[in-house]
Design a protein around this nucleic acid. Structure first.
Lengths: 334, 334
DNA sequence: TTGTACGCGTTATCAT
DNA sequence: ATGATAACGCGTACAA
């Protein structure tokens, strides 16, 4: 890599002259400025970012810690983060916690050494369950801004960007009750231990009790593959009064549709189905599932802009932003 | 952030003594070593990574440039990359090209300034179509190792990790012909302009001609949402002789199953369906789609290890590794 | 207009 | 056993 020193030596001038010339300082003559720039271009000179970072004590880099990226929600959030970061001339270092506490901890600690100017994170399942978040408060007390999105720790004071989990599910449930005249709505859950899962279940339960209806909840308890199908199939077979399904994740809604068809149910006549969904979710189901679409991309964008604001403007206030979901209903037949 | 200088000042000793003490140098007395370490722990000292990087002229960071991360294949590859990088004490900086040439170019150039020690990338759709890859060769001539996976530029000499696109589709097609006795196999494609798309189509075509059968290819031409369904539905309706479908992406296979059911076809009796798939693909279809499962995670892992090998051992040879896919057939009924 | 000197935080070499 | 000094590459205050 070409350095200022090398350019200076080749041109027989000092390093600082070269530096100033490249930065278009008024102190430098037109002549030398051009000579310097020409050689710099020719040798493809690029200022060493590491040196600049050391000098300014800023990395212009954000640490992004996600549980996983194979979950389409997080993937889309990451996309939003990347775009917003790029727009602000920031890089992102991505770490995946795999939902484990120790990896999340490790990443946070490892990057808290000047590598990044702040963090965007969603807390790992394990950290949330074990309520161990000392590593996060430590980073904050270390002067490193942390922004939490989606899964959030209430006790920690920091910027937060969350989804309207309670509200969107409440509305979706009410839609089923009022607009579609459903009475026996089954909630299917496999994330009941997460803060977001709890909120969604609460939204559902509240809507039902508000309308004097009985809740039906099927907890899948982390079932995978065929187990998911079997549990849903068996439940539907045993409980024929169910006339609507509300899935609080992005997979089981589609599975429910498939199982219902297998049982000979006519969707959406016999059964309405709403699930959480992203980009392709509706394309993958037939008939189209109604979805609660979380604006994942927007969440990433907002989070990034908010964090950068905090990084660059130390006395900015801490806030919690709620990003409303979009309810995309399939047209009702009733 | 605590620095060596601060520790030294507080302990009334020199910076170099502190540095040596922390690095367990034999030159330092047991006594001061302990005093130093105690204070360091107390003040939560962490060596500034940026300064270390400047000193060693190594970033221990890999630049990862992907077209997108909402495609589950790339998401899973990223997961593999992240794990392997972490295992080797490397960080990853992630850039998303959004399939555009200019963003890919920009990312590559921006990071070629000491920010990273090398790149893992899959070339953007646009770069591949326009055959503009000068930015990649430039990085390489800049002494920055580049590893390409999946979509690859043949003309560029560098480490490559690819999928057995031709072979896996050839075998899948042959499976349909021989094991399932299918005669009219429809290939559904919406990525025909990508190198991997071409290879898959070639595998299909070769298998058919080897068995004296006629190819049927439905090119969707980047159709989205309902268009995808409509095109497949209409084709199946108009061509009732089709008895098998081979989708070369991870979406249209499932859509095809749904459309076939809608047309009253009995799967897998009337129609066999094979698609490319990942983690959850089979869970989302009913009956289960047969899938060609690319070992995305493994591709990420291998790529990372290979690149790090090249970074740390300059005279390692360049190679191309083919990662075989796994064919997960649903049990045939015939 | 150009050059000198210093500091960012770390490590390594060379004194003491 | 400890300390002084230089160096990585850059930017900038200050001197010439």
């Amino acid at each position: 890599m070409t350095t200022l020193k090398e350019l200076a030596a080749l041109l027989n001038i000092s390093v600082s002259t070269v530096s100033k010339a490249l930065n278009d300082s008024h102190e430098i003559s037109e002549n030398t400025r051009l000579r310097v720039k020409e050689l710099a271009t020719k040798l493809n000179y690029k200022p060493n970012r590491i040196a600049q970072q050391l000098k300014t004590n800023k990395s212009k880099t954000i640490g992004v810690i996600l549980p996983t990226v194979t979950n389409p929600f997080f993937a889309e959030v990451l996309h939003g983060i990347e775009m917003a970061a790029t727009n602000n001339d920031y890089d992102i270092i991505v770490c995946l916690s795999n939902e484990t506490l120790h990896k999340e901890k490790r990443s946070l600690e490892l990057l808290s050494n000047g590598s990044v100017d702040g963090f965007i994170m969603t807390v790992a399942r394990e950290s949330q369950v074990q309520k161990d978040t000392s590593h996060i408060t430590e980073a904050i007390s270390n002067q490193l801004p942390v922004l939490m999105f989606d899964r959030v720790i209430d006790d920690i004071a920091c910027n937060k960007v969350i989804v309207d989990d309670f509200q969107s599910v409440y509305e979706a449930t009410e839609h089923l009750i009022i607009k579609e005249q459903r009475k026996n709505i089954l909630l299917v859950s496999n994330i009941e231990e997460l803060s977001v899962g709890k909120l969604r279940i609460e939204g559902y339960t509240k809507a039902l009790t508000d309308h004097n209806l009985e809740p039906h909840i099927l907890k899948l308890d982390h079932a995978v593959d065929l187990d998911v199908e079997a549990k849903i199939y068996n439940y539907l077979q045993a409980n024929t009064s169910i006339d609507a399904i509300l899935s609080i994740d992005h997979v089981t809604g589609i599975v429910a549709i498939n199982m219902a068809k297998k049982l000979g149910l006519d969707i959406p006549i016999d059964l309405s189905v709403i699930g959480f969904g992203y980009e392709h979710t509706q394309l993958l189901s037939s008939p189209k599932i109604s979805i609660i679409h979380q604006k994942a991309h927007k969440i990433g964008e907002i989070s990034t802009n908010l964090l950068i604001e905090q990084i660059e403007n130390k006395d900015s206030d801490i806030q919690t932003i709620v990003v409303p979901s979009e309810l995309k209903y399939t047209e009702s037949v009733i």
